[in-house]
């Protein structure tokens, strides 16, 4: 099958790649570009481990084709920190131990970033529903919710 040439922006950098027409953006990120931060927990849009932001919209990258990224902006967990300065969400996830195994963490961080961009001062309930598309099997979500609340407070103050 002939490849599709794609020009896109990933975490602020212009990137060009060739991919198969039926290849998911998740596979492109992971297998072609070496960006393995987004994880595949299901491949069917049910777990959120592959969450990325595509033109300011939170999406499951396992449900997006690599070819669809043409001309758009992709944000992944690899782009959250500035140099060695962690994003407040990353910092708060560490401080609250909002991760045990950590496989869900990149997806949660991206989903939480999107949530706070749209609602900088969410209630606990809004956080819980805002993150309901992401599965975590380890934490029971308690510490994740607290980390997001704490990060929201820090970001409001900033």
């Amino acid at each position: 099958m002939a490849g599709v040439a794609v020009s896109t922006t990933i975490n602020g950098d212009s990137v060009e790649y060739l991919c198969q027409p039926d290849e998911t953006l998740l596979d492109v990120l992971r297998d072609r570009l070496g960006l393995t931060g987004a994880k595949e927990g299901c491949g069917t849009g049910d777990c959120g481990a592959c969450s990325i932001i595509l033109d300011d919209r939170l999406v499951c990258s396992c449900l997006v084709l690599g070819a669809e990224a043409e001309g758009r902006r992709v944000e992944t967990v690899e782009g959250m920190a500035h140099g060695d300065r962690l994003h407040p969400l990353q910092q708060k996830f560490l401080e609250h131990a909002a991760l045990q195994c950590g496989i869900c963490t990149p997806g949660f961080l991206i989903a939480a970033k999107d949530l706070l961009a749209k609602n900088p001062d969410p209630t606990e309930e809004e956080i819980r529903f805002g993150l309901a598309g992401n599965l975590c099997r380890c934490t029971g979500y308690d510490k994740i919710v607290r980390a997001v609340q704490d990060a929201a407070n820090v970001m409001k103050g900033a």
Binding site: T36, A38, K39, V77, E78, G102, L109
Partner: peptide, 12 residues
Amino acid sequence: VDKVTGRARYGA
């Protein structure tokens, strides 16, 4: 830090 920045390497 590796786990919140996407650098940690899991099975896949």
